[in-house]
Simulated scan of single mutants.
Amino acid sequence: GYPPLALHPAAIKLNEPVTVKGDVSSQFLTALLMALPLLDSKSRVEVQGELISRPYVEITLNVMRRFGVEVARREWHSFEVPAARYVSPGKIYVEGDASSASYFLAAGAIGGGPVRVEGVGRDSIQGDVRFTEVLERMGARVSMGDGWIEAAGGKKLKAVDMDLNHIPDAAMTAAVMALFADGPSTLRNIGSWRVKETDRLAAMATELRKLGARVEEGRDSLRISPGKLKTAVIDTYADHRMAMSFSLAALGGVPVRINDPGCVAKTFPEYFSAFASIAAA
């Protein structure tokens, strides 16, 4: 029931729909959708419960379409996968990672900026590009073009109350931005944080308190009331996004030490070098 798993060749035939829980992680669904065309037969996936992180599923469907497999979606409850083979599109543009872009855009909003991120823009197929909506709600100036996004601040950020179920990774960036807001911010519908690299709800609450915030941890929400920023040593729980998110606290003018910074190697090994380059600019 847990790794390591031993996988053996088998003849797989589906005589009934595959069911998958949708309220824990969208990754189970996206993995199935990508694998099912390899069966060379029609199949159907039915989702149990409310499907979270829907933009990530949309990315998967978009890329499958580009490789010749058109999946029919009935709302977000079931997916019909045809008996089709993947076909190379010949050329395909791979965007930069919008989740990683969120840290630099937030830095622009917090530090004044402007900071421009290239490789992802207004026509992105990634759900986390909607982090720009959080930036705008918090008072940042955001501009976008073909393949770039730019953010700038200069004024005190505004507190927000937002449902961030659709951008759970970038929501972590918003949580640290809340330290710089003009009042309490509430991030809602982020219960999927509890089953990530660590229990991110508990971890985020703990580390934000070290920096002087008052934090109320709900079952699937955080209410963050900023206080006077304090020097802190931040634990990362072997979670790359904890390390990258909390680096933004240093823009408040207080020293912040990040334990185990090497955990960022999972997705962005050069993160701290890149962050230092804009912090020194």
Rank of each mutant, 00 (worst) to 15 (best):
K156L: 12
V94C: 09
W148D: 06
Y93K: 13
L61H: 02
P82K: 07
E136R: 15
G68C: 05
V117S: 02
I110T: 09
R74E: 15
S102N: 05
G154D: 12
R85N: 13
R130I: 03
A151Y: 04
F131L: 07
S78P: 08
F131K: 08
T60G: 11
G153R: 04
E80N: 08
E136S: 14
W148C: 05
R65L: 14
V129Q: 13
P89N: 04
V115A: 06
S102R: 01
G153M: 07
V129S: 11
I92Q: 02
H77A: 14
P89C: 08
F79Q: 04
A83W: 10
V160R: 03
R116W: 00
A159P: 08
I92T: 09
R137G: 02
D128R: 02
L157T: 11
V87P: 01
D146L: 10
R65P: 00
V71A: 05
E75F: 03
V63E: 14
G90R: 02
W76N: 14
V117P: 07
V57K: 01
T60A: 06
N62T: 15
S78C: 12
T132V: 15
V69K: 10
I125F: 12
V57Y: 07
A101F: 00
M138Q: 13
A107L: 11
I92E: 13
Y86C: 06
G145D: 11
S78H: 04
G111K: 07
D161I: 07
E75C: 00
A140G: 09
F67C: 08
E150N: 08
D161F: 00
A98Y: 01
G119L: 13
R141M: 14
I92C: 02
G153S: 06
V160E: 12
V81K: 03
V71T: 02
G145H: 05
G113F: 00
Y56S: 06
